[in-house]
Nucleic acid binder design. Structure first.
Length: 811
RNA sequence: GGGCCUGUAGUCUAGUGGCUAUGACGUCGCCUUCACGAGGCGAAGGUCCCCGGUUCGAAUCCGGGCAGGCCCACCA
């Protein structure tokens, strides 16, 4: 057999990827057989380039999917991209240098769709193919295509009909930079420098009341003042009023348990709206609404002379004016955390506006129960879900005032504002360009309608990925077996977004959990263990890593962390992966060289050293299989690697050489036993590593095994089967003793600066009768490895512990 | 402020009650070896974060600290 001496990673990986694609190895066959294993693949947000965190997390998913496929399961592993909503809008604005509002809705939408289709998406997906995701890339969706629009709009209609959705003018979190409402999950913390301002309010009797605030610009929106009901300092003021400085209007002073006597002056100024507490006070006490800030982040009429100023300028001006009137007692600089919008970092305002909500705060108990029904890997990730549910304080606001996304399938009667839904058979619709399905309002008979111009938040669509993916096979009998799905793989940072929302939607629509198992991966960190970010300049690009080391090495690295654990990127791990590839190639080359004429026959009896190897191998298979069943691919990698290097290469291959190069000295069955074992062990090793390093293992498989095993690809072959009959403790003891003897000889040669080839006159092993018996049948193999002319077994006292074999060597 | 995770050679890491604590990278020494010098063999390197407890026995279990990370809350 002609075997190339070096394995060229770049050329081989390209070659096998083309092979898989051409032969459609990973195509999903809906008519296939076996237990379905359906995967809710995360659709990555199209953002220019795959980053290392993606490579890390997606590689880990692919390990377990490939394993399941080799276990004979009917794998459904679709692929989608998320290219809907605000992130895409921002990306297009940036890459094309445009502003959505300036372009106009229609032109901008068209630009988005075309840019995605022609420029961004194809190149983006290539990276996922390059790390060898074994997805069926033809079972494909994008969260903005018609398939997803239809499902998303139908979801809206169904939940509306179920009474789960309402449109309401209500306080909602709002980003004045992006000019849209946002939801709780889109918040991020930011540490900002600010001032605690002690401001003087005037009481009815003319005395002062000091209130501390970080947001003086909200003074015109002040509607009440609260103090703790048991706060003796202020008890006498309840029911009285205070005058807001500068703006000179009176507000009531009321008790509220939410006011903390320890904080500031113990007085809480309630403005509509400064924070969540204000909202709750507003609702609880039915306070008036005073809007001081508009949707663009500027002061309204209410602010009088400050009208039109931005929040930050108004804040400064108001402080100046308070100082001027001696109404500012003091300013204390503080550093505090505020909520900002995760997309743009702008401080979030709470504004009253008309938004669509999914009502779900009443379901907290059920949500917790749903979370407990899922299998979490690793288990502790459930806590994050529960924390989130326990902390929920808002219904889910799903409307966004932006230009790009899936429209609400809704019109309103121009007269009575009745909600007119699209008909299901018309979906997807765009109410701006499409006509409503009625000509007269069913409520008031009016004939004019206005379209909803908001779009549905992207998470309200991507939380439907299980249904979206399954519905790609709608109408086929397989359809109903694809949902609920088997597994949701994802990283831990989006448990509160994507995972939680998907559970909610699936429950509300279908009353079931969307999947059985949640498999949560960690993050890729920089070499110093820090988070990677563009601003820190510590970003490692997976494309560059693959240029140098290839996908197998990158995957090898990704397989070195336990599931759910973050992992620093270490170039040395890539080097280790490359060494592993070289070693695997060379060991396989050796095996295949000697298997030339081997046709698969079994020996009548296994030689002792072969029994030892196969016994160890089957223990490995058992452990590796159990680990993979628990999604612990890292353990499979670790143990396979150890077995391959230490047991198979360092020792077994050395033992077996004697029978292969010097076969006349052995019986035919002993030689056959060697070939049989070599064949089985090498095949098992490449199969165990196949999910993690798909290219090198395919390359070896195709050299020889594909034909003999009659398989198209190693990735469609069967995972090694554990055979308990091959686990042989006696053989293991014997083989391990032989390894100890070889180790002693190697140490002797190394310490004496001798080549391992140096011949030895005699090795004397002092051991017990039992041990001598175990070693019988291995002498010839031992002589071969040690290059000794004779081996003798001296009698040892029974007292010698087995670990202390005494080995003497004569040159 | 609450919750969760993590702490093991210079570095990364395995190890949920029992061999001399795993492996890799790095370091040092030796070996041109018939699969592999893009290698091999060998060696050195440890307060298993600290303190207490349980136990015949603790890296492992319990309690209390300390340090790092993440999630959430607070935001007057």
């Amino acid at each position: 057999m002609e075997l190339q001496k070096w394995y060229d990673i770049a050329a081989e990986e390209a070659k096998w990827q083309a092979f898989w694609e051409e032969k459609k190895i990973f195509r999903f066959d809906p008519d296939g057989t076996g237990e379905v294993f359906a995967v809710d693949t995360p659709p990555p947000t199209v953002s220019g380039k795959m980053h290392l965190g993606h490579a890390f997390s997606y590689a880990q998913q692919d390990f377990v999917v490939r394993y399941r496929r080799m276990r004979g399961m009917h794998v459904y592993f679709p692929f989608g991209t998320d290219d809907n909503g605000l992130p895409t809008l921002r990306l297009i604005e940036k890459t094309k240098g445009v502003k959505a509002e300036k372009m106009g809705r229609e032109r901008f939408r068209k630009l988005c769709v075309e840019t995605l289709e022609n420029d961004l998406r194809p190149g983006y997906i290539k990276d996922w193919k390059r790390i060898a995701m074994s997805c069926d890339f033809d079972s494909f969706y994008t969260t903005i295509n018609n398939h997803c629009r239809r499902i998303s709009q139908k979801s809206f209609i169904d939940l509306y009909k179920a009474g789960r959705e309402y449109r309401k003018e209500a306080p909602a979190m709002y980003c004045t930079e992006c000019r849209t409402a946002i939801s709780q999950v889109e918040l991020q913390d930011a540490e900002l420098d600010s001032f605690f301002n002690d401001i003087v309010f005037e009481l009815e009797d003319g005395s002062d009341l000091i209130i501390a605030t970080t947001r003086p610009e909200l003074l015109p929106a002040c509607v009440a003042i609260f103090a703790h009901p048991e706060d003796e300092r202020y008890a006498k003021l309840f029911g009285k009023r205070a005058k807001v400085p500068l703006f000179d209007f009176w507000v009531p002073i009321m008790p509220s348990p939410r006011a903390d006597p320890e904080k500031g002056t113990g007085i809480l100024m309630c403005c509509t709206f400064g924070d969540q507490d204000d909202v709750e006070h507003y609702l609880e006490h039915k306070l008036p609404l005073k809007v001081a800030i508009d949707g663009e982040g500027n002061m309204t009429d209410l602010a009088g002379s400050y009208k039109g100023m931005s929040v930050s300028i108004a804040r400064r001006m108001i402080i100046e004016d308070l100082k001027g009137r001696r109404k500012l007692l003091s300013q204390t600089p503080i550093r505090h955390t505020v909520n900002v919008h995760e997309r743009c970092g702008t401080e979030v305002q709470i504004l009253n506006s008309k938004q669509w909500f999914i009502r779900y705060l009443d379901l907290k108990e059920q949500m917790l129960a749903w979370g407990r029904e899922l299998n979490w890997y690793p288990n502790h990730m459930r806590v994050r879900y529960e924390n989130w549910v326990n902390g929920l304080r808002w219904d889910w606001c799903i409307s966004r005032q932006i230009y790009f996304g899936i429209p609400f399938p809704v019109w309103y009667c121009a007269k009575c504002e009745a909600v007119i839904l699209a008909r299901e058979e018309d979906l997807p619709v765009d109410p701006i360009t499409d006509r409503p399905p009625v000509t007269k309002c069913p409520k008031c008979g009016h004939g004019e309608f206005v379209p909803e111009t908001d779009i549905i938040n992207t998470w309200a669509t991507s939380s439907l990925t299980p249904q979206i993916a399954a519905d790609l096979y709608k109408g086929h009998p397989i359809h109903q077996r694809l949902y609920p799905m088997s597994m949701r793989p994802q990283a831990h940072d989006i448990i509160t977004f994507w995972l939680f929302n998907t559970v909610v939607k699936s429950r509300l629509h279908n009353g079931v959990n969307p999947w059985k198992d949640c498999v949560i991966s960690g993050h890729a960190l920089d070499p110093r263990g820090k988070k990677m970010s563009k601003s820190k300049g510590n970003v490692v690009e997976p494309q560059k890593v693959m240029d140098e080391y290839g996908a197998d090495c990158l995957r090898f690295w990704a397989a070195s962390s336990k599931l759910g654990e973050d992992l620093p990127f270490m170039e040395k791990d890539l080097v280790t992966g490359r060494k592993f590839i070289t070693k695997l190639w060379n060991a396989s080359r050796f095996a295949l060289m000697h298997l030339g004429g081997y046709a698969g026959a079994r020996p009548k009896r296994l030689a002792p050293i072969d029994a030892w190897l196969l016994s160890r191998l089957h223990r490995l298979i058992k452990g590796a299989t159990e680990s993979f069943e628990r999604y612990e691919y890292a353990r499979t990698r670790l143990e396979t690697e150890k077995f391959f290097w230490q047991v198979f290469c360092d020792n077994y291959l050395e033992f077996v050489k004697e029978r292969l190069y010097n076969s006349e000295a052995f019986g035919p069955d002993e030689v056959l036993s060697a070939k049989y074992t070599l064949y089985q062990a090498n095949l098992a090793i490449i199969k165990l590593m196949a999910p993690i390093m798909p290219h090198i293992t395919e390359a070896v498989f195709q050299l020889y095994y594909a034909k003999h095993e009659n398989e198209k690809s190693i990735h469609l072959s069967q995972w090694p089967a554990y055979d308990a009959k091959l686990v042989d403790e006696k053989a293991e003891k014997a083989g391990d003793l032989a390894v100890v003897i070889v180790g002693a000889v190697r140490r002797h040669k190394s310490e004496n600066a001798l080549s391992l080839k140096t011949e030895l006159a005699m090795i004397t092993v002092e051991c017990t009768k039992q041990e001598e018996a175990l070693l019988s049948g291995i002498e010839k193999d031992l002589l071969g490895v040690t290059k000794a002319r004779r081996i003798a077994f001296g009698k040892a006292d029974q007292d010698i512990p087995d670990t202390a074999l005494r080995i003497s060597i004569e040159q």
